[in-house]
């Protein structure tokens, strides 16, 4: 199994799939027998939140820390104080869902010194090469550098989350492997995982595949 770090940070371009990956990663931690909590500190987009998965996560024994006004229609970017406890107490695994782009990563600033001091963290750069502003490794690198400029922490690895939503075919994922490798060369960061929707299990050929489930839409 993957060598889980005490703190896992999910950053990337907005719409790259950070929230869904963070939810699935927290579930994987729990499935591996770790005490885990998921903190949503996405101050950029108030629309899709890890809080949407709160009931499911809690039923699995995963604690969920959300913004005080999440899912209330109040668009107020304040951070929950419990995140300090999660970062500082070091008594359980922490998964942090960070907002998109450099603006989202700004929210990490106040917690960054504690995370850096403990130095037991993964900071994942989540990339979907089917997103229009990160179609290439070079374009993704621009976003990655912008995010790093907004936080004192450095990325530790890449998660290739390339997909076309419900229409994703196995070949769509496999086609992005060369781009992910280019990004690896450009950054010197390893590709930790390629995410694959559970419904495509066994149909994608590649290394370090991480199977994820998606929330179902009623339309």
């Amino acid at each position: 199994m993957y060598d889980f770090k005490r703190v896992s940070l999910f950053c990337g371009h907005y719409g790259s799939g950070k929230t869904n990956l963070a939810v699935n990663y927290a579930k994987a931690l729990r499935a591996a027998g770790r005490e885990a909590a998921l903190a949503d500190i996405d101050i950029v987009n108030p629309y899709f939140r890890s809080k949407d998965s709160e009931a499911e996560l809690r039923s699995l024994g995963i604690d969920v820390i959300s913004l005080p006004f999440a899912n209330t229609s109040v668009d107020l970017p304040s951070l929950p104080s419990e995140v300090y406890g999660l970062v500082q107490r070091r008594d359980r695994f922490a998964v942090l869902d960070i907002g998109g782009d450099d603006r989202g990563a700004l929210a990490l600033g106040r917690f960054a010194p504690y995370i850096a001091e403990e130095n037991d963290y993964d900071m994942f750069f989540v990339v979907n090469f089917y997103r229009p502003l990160t179609r290439t490794a070079a374009a993704a690198l621009d976003v990655l550098r912008e995010i790093e400029a907004a936080t004192p922490l450095r990325f530790t690895s890449i998660i290739n989350n390339s997909n076309l939503g419900e229409e994703t075919a196995p070949a769509d994922i496999e086609k992005t492997f060369p781009e992910a490798q280019t990004l690896r060369r450009l950054t010197g960061l390893p590709v930790a995982f390629t995410s694959v929707c559970e419904t495509l299990r066994g149909r994608v050929t590649g290394e370090n595949l991480f199977y994820i489930s998606l929330q179902k839409k009623p339309f």
Partner: peptide
């Protein structure tokens, strides 16, 4: 070729 977009972004690019 297809890309994955938010509706708001699709309006802007279109």
């Amino acid at each position: 070729e297809k890309v994955l977009m938010k509706g708001n972004e699709a309006i802007a690019e279109a």
